[in-house]
Design a protein around this nucleic acid. Structure first.
Ligand code: ZN
Ligand code: ZN
Ligand code: ZN
Ligand code: ZN
Lengths: 130, 130
DNA sequence: AACTAATTGCAACATTGTTGCGATATTATT
DNA sequence: AATAATATCGCAACAATGTTGCAATTAGTT
């Protein structure tokens, strides 16, 4: 049993997540705190935050990896089965916490987790497109 | 208008896709034909096959990129909106051509494409698990 | 203050994918 | 069959992203 520590770098990363409404990549996070710590440290902090269920990892349609803070509501059990929206124009990824797909699976598969990502135009880009 | 050519390398790649029931990564393909052509050639062939709608690109939950042959049925319009299954044990990715999710989106989003990937145990690994 | 273990920095490495360019091979044309 | 046009290839070099080992640092505890 290891006890997590509150380090300067970890605090900086959490502050960035607190300010952001969208999902962020390792590079985007690192650029904001390159004077605080090393690249590798950011990777390791993100790993730990994912393991501790404080942040979840999202893989975009093109393979880009991003991270977003989890919203734990009042639920005891915390599962990241919500959908994500990937804007083709501004490339932002947003959590769609309330969008949950329904589907019918063939037999003989055991589904443990799902990943549902939609792409297109986000509200911002849709409006500026008129 | 450029006319595609049938080269040795392209034929080799298509043969591999013909034999495989599951999606394949660039590396998996290249390993089978490294005496035929260069790594870069495999990348370029895959790009072209995707553009020509002969193969489709799949990004796994962990960011792994794979490719699978398209099944064009009798439909005129060809859209890759089917789901994929990613086995957590054998790591194989399978196309679930008939699984299509239904969902409700918030307003102000324009959805152009969806990516729906389920993970868990495939029929093979489920049986060998008993 | 001293101790313990989590965390960090750095360097080195691995994997995956891209680009430029001269050489080669395929296809259509004569 | 020879020629011409150009799609494709090989190679080398580069870029982006992520990982690992290990010694040094630092946070939390006693
Ligand atoms: Zn947008
Ligand atoms: Zn999310
Ligand atoms: Zn399996
Ligand atoms: Zn598929």
């Amino acid at each position: 049993m290891k006890t997590a520590r509150n380090t300067t770098a970890k605090t900086a990363v959490l502050e960035i997540f607190g300010k952001s409404k969208i999902a962020l990549s390792h590079t985007e996070i690192y650029k904001q705190i390159e004077d605080v710590c090393d690249r590798v440290t950011v990777y390791r902090i993100l790993d730990r935050l994912v393991n501790d269920d404080i942040v979840h990892k999202i893989v975009d349609l093109d393979g880009t990896v991003k991270y977003a803070k989890c919203h734990h509501h009042a639920q005891r059990v915390h599962i990241h089965n919500h959908a994500h929206f990937s804007c083709e124009k501004c490339l932002e990824i947003t959590c769609l916490e309330n969008v949950k797909p329904s589907y019918i699976m063939p037999h003989n598969y055991k589904v443990n987790n799902i990943n549902f990502t939609l792409s297109g135009l986000c509200p911002n880009c849709l409006n500026s497109n008129i």
